[in-house]
């Protein structure tokens, strides 16, 4: 399939993520990403779509600096991830919020403690935690369930807790890896509305998804990956099926 529209041109001033000729090959030699160029600006809402094995997860892992590039240059919020020192990675990650398909909540702790956990990690004081956690729980609509354990919540509610945990440290970028993958359509839409609301408040949101309906309906920028290559990057795009 031909590339529909490729974003090119100079690096804009408020660019928050830049990938230049990024390739990633695993130890087996199989390329996961091939010569990827990508620019995302501050405050954007971006969908990254593609089938299994297209390189979406590798891209997210590169943005989190869980993996390093095999070649090329990757810059996130001014951090050169190709060269960043190990001891600076925690500080870098504090600017990112991450939400997973399987929620990844701590099962032995209640909603409040799950969210407070993120604040404790960045060494916020108890006073700040007591102020910030209820406030973020109110935003995701879980103020009344702060004592509940994850097993007592529905899938949608668990994803809201994960979202609250990702947001409580006020990240610049929110990465959501298949956030609706385990949810029914109603809960999926509620989560997407929350993500849109978060984006409207200034956070850059990047959502990796397989959900065609949501991608097509939301009319956001859509980057489509296939076999490690960006085949499409549209401003108000839709889901492209593999031929």
């Amino acid at each position: 399939m031909a590339v529909k529209k490729k974003r090119k041109g100079p690096v804009v001033e408020n660019e928050i993520i830049t990938l230049t000729n990024v390739s990633k090959a695993y130890s087996t030699g199989a390329p996961a990403l091939k010569d990827v160029n990508l620019h995302i600006s501050r405050g954007e809402f971006v969908f990254i779509v593609g089938d299994s094995g297209s390189g979406k997860s590798t891209l997210i892992k590169l943005l989190l600096r869980e993996l390093t590039v095999s070649s090329g240059y990757i810059n996130v919020m001014g951090y050169d991830l190709s060269r960043i020192k190990h001891r600076k990675i925690p500080k870098f990650r504090r600017n990112l919020g991450i939400v997973f398909q399987d929620f990844r909540l701590l099962k032995d702790r209640n909603v409040y403690e799950n969210v407070a956990f993120a604040q404790r990690i960045i060494q916020k004081s108890n006073k700040e935690i007591k102020k910030n956690v209820p406030s973020i729980l109110a935003i995701v609509g879980l103020a009344g369930k702060y004592k509940a354990k994850p097993r007592q919540l529905s899938g949608g509610e668990q994803q809201r807790v994960a979202l609250a945990r990702a947001l409580v440290n006020q990240p610049t970028i929110l990465l959501a890896d298949e956030p609706t993958g385990n949810l029914d359509p109603k809960n999926s839409w509620e989560i997407m509305k929350l993500l849109e609301q978060i984006n409207e408040n200034g956070t850059t949101v990047i959502v990796v998804t397989h959900n065609r309906e949501i991608v097509n309906a939301m009319q956001k920028r859509v980057i489509t990956l296939r076999r490690g290559v960006i085949i499409s990057d549209e401003e108000k795009g839709g889901y492209i099926d593999e031929d």
């Binding site: 925690p90 990112l96 990690i121 945990r165 440290n169």
Partner: peptide
């Protein structure tokens, strides 16, 4: 699992 979450949130070594 917990350690992985900590890592993503930005916990230091």
């Amino acid at each position: 699992e917990e350690i992985n979450i900590m890592k993503y949130i930005g916990a230091t070594d």
